[in-house]
Every structure is written in structure tokens, then in C-alpha cells.
């Protein structure tokens, strides 16, 4: 299994734990990730707020950089994934816009034919392409007893509805069941973490984060597993400030799903970016998994 790999800016620094754990689990699962050479930022939600055509062209450069020998591109970040997928779809459905995007790409000597690259989120690659049988066969340290709340957020499951159910996604739930974890039926698993709102207006942003943490607490969650750097940052790095605003005492570790997958596959913790989270996951992981 070979995929072009678009890490995205967050994975370089703030989501470095996602980066190392993605690469580690890919090696164990036999997924070959070929990093896109000289990829550029997807513009997140910010570029679309300013200039649609330029936003699309900036994103399309990455699609155009996928080597002709490859036809699948995977991204671990929800926002990067959606932007890449959206531009491919927009170009296919709106030839006028597609033509202009290609005219812009031509200024850099590039071209992209919509549909040439299939954009996949990393969760699809692991859950669907690698699949249950191969994953179960490689579990050496089951996550028995660990209560994991799978959190999907928004942009992997919406607006396009072909990755998973847009309201009640289940792929990460299934994955954690294969790993032996106790999966929390997390009611807010596809609700919003506030995205960039933490940077704009804290009362609104912190209320959205509070709802996610409160629900996790009510369901006796040991750890929240997420698949997006923004979600992780908001729930983890802002957790103490959310506590300050609402007089709460949340202390819930938030990890990338690949860190927990890596543990189950027997990858040493030090190779999975543990310890980079602000709310430390070490104590609960060691307490719950000590017997294994």
C-alpha cells in the first residue's frame, strides 16, 4: 500500500506527536507514506475567507505535485484533508473554476486534472484499506480497560458524507474495539471544537470546548482520541484556561488516535510522541495498562 503523504504545517511543530506516531504506525502496518516533495500550506479556513480562487490555487499546487505514479494522497489533519478533497471536487464539478485554477497553476509550470488523485483521510487508510484483520493480527498490547472517547470533530465527516456518517461516525470506534479498548459511545463525537475561534473570541470558543470535556467526564473517559491537530490543541492546550473560565476541574488527556494505535501495536512510547500533550496521558495509561 503506497500513498502520497501530505503532513500539513501543524505536524511540523505543534502536532509533532501526530507526525511521529503516524509514521511509526504506518511502518508497522506496511503502509508506505511518500511525503509530497515541497508541499505548501493548505491555507486552513483562513484563505477561503479572503480570496477563493487564490485559496483553491494554493491548495491545488499540492495536488499537482503528486507524482504521476501515484493516485492516492492521504492527510492526517482534518482541515488539510478537507481542503485538498474540496478543491479536487470543485474543479471536477465547476469546469470554469477548474480552468482558472489551472491557469494559475500554469504560471508555476504545473497542471492538475481533477479526479487524478483520490484524497483520503488517514483514518480511512488505516480503518478501511489496512482493515480489521491485518490490524488485529498486529496487536501485541491490547488497550484492555482503557476507556477511550473517539472524537471526530467536523471536517473529516462533513460536508462530504462518503468517509463516514456525518452525524454519528463509527470508524474510529471500530478501530479502538479492534485494539481491545473500552470505547465510550461519545455523544458529542462529531461536534465542533471551535476551530480557530480560540484565536478570535474566547467565551464562545471555550464554551464549545467545555461541552466536549464535560461530556467526556460524564462518560468516565480516560482519554479522548482525536484525528485533527486543531481539535487536539483546543481541548488539550486550552483545557486549564477553560477550567479557569468555568470554574471546572477537567483533567482529561487528549491524544492522537495514532498514538494509542501505536501503543497497541507495540511501538515504544518514546517513539509515539507521548509527553508532548499538556494534560499528561502517562498516569492513566500506565495505571490502566500496567497489567498487560
Amino acid at each position: 500500500m503506497k500513498y502520497a503523504f501530505y503532513p500539513g504545517c501543524s505536524l511540523e511543530v505543534n502536532a509533532a506527536a501526530y507526525d511521529v506516531s503516524v509514521r511509526a504506525v504506518a511502518r508497522v502496518l506496511g503502509v508506505e507514506l511518500v511525503e509530497l516533495d515541497d508541499w505548501n500550506c493548505c491555507g486552513a479556513t483562513e484563505y477561503f475567507s479572503q480570496d477563493e480562487l487564490t485559496a483553491c490555487a494554493v491548495i491545488a499546487r499540492n495536488l499537482a505535485l503528486v507524482e504521476p505514479s501515484m493516485n492516492q494522497l492521504t492527510a492526517p489533519c482534518a482541515a488539510c484533508f478537507l481542503n485538498l478533497k474540496k478543491v479536487d471536487r470543485l474543479m471536477a464539478e465547476h469546469p470554469d473554476l477548474g480552468g482558472k485554477i489551472n491557469e494559475a497553476l500554469a504560471a508555476g509550470g504545473l497542471h492538475y486534472d481533477p479526479g487524478r488523485v483520490r484524497v483520503r483521510h488517514l483514518l480511512e487508510v488505516i480503518h478501511t484499506d489496512v482493515g480489521e484483520e491485518a490490524i488485529k493480527a498486529k496487536v501485541v498490547r491490547p488497550l484492555t480497560g482503557l476507556r477511550v472517547a473517539p472524537y471526530y470533530g467536523c471536517q473529516v465527516v462533513r460536508p462530504y458524507k462518503d468517509v463516514d456518517d456525518p452525524e454519528y461516525p463509527v470508524k474510529m470506534d471500530e478501530l479502538f474495539r479492534w485494539l481491545g479498548a473500552e470505547v465510550v459511545d461519545y455523544p458529542v463525537k462529531s461536534h465542533c471544537c471551535g476551530g480557530h475561534m480560540t484565536q478570535i473570541s474566547e467565551p464562545e470558543a471555550f464554551e464549545l470546548i467545555r461541552r466536549l470535556l464535560q461530556s467526556a467526564l460524564e462518560y468516565d473517559t480516560d482519554v479522548i482520541a482525536c484525528l485533527c491537530p486543531m481539535c487536539q490543541l483546543n481541548m488539550d492546550a486550552y483545557q486549564s484556561r477553560v477550567n479557569g473560565m468555568f470554574n471546572t476541574s477537567f483533567h482529561i488527556p487528549v491524544l492522537y488516535f495514532t498514538q494509542l494505535l501505536g501503543l497497541a501495536l507495540g511501538v515504544p512510547e518514546k517513539d509515539l510522541g507521548f509527553g508532548k500533550e499538556i494534560v499528561s496521558a502517562g498516569p492513566v495509561i500506565h495505571a490502566k495498562l500496567a497489567a498487560c
Binding site: 480570496d51 487564490t54 490555487a57 499546487r61 504560471a107 508555476g108
Partner: peptide, 13 residues
């Protein structure tokens, strides 16, 4: 290369 693409896109838009 990226900046050339951006300039062209701005001009077209």
C-alpha cells in the same frame, strides 16, 4: 513558484 501561482490567481480573480 508558489508566489507566481498566487499572483496569477489574484489577477484572474
Amino acid at each position: 513558484q508558489l508566489q507566481a501561482i498566487i499572483r496569477k490567481a489574484r489577477q484572474l480573480g
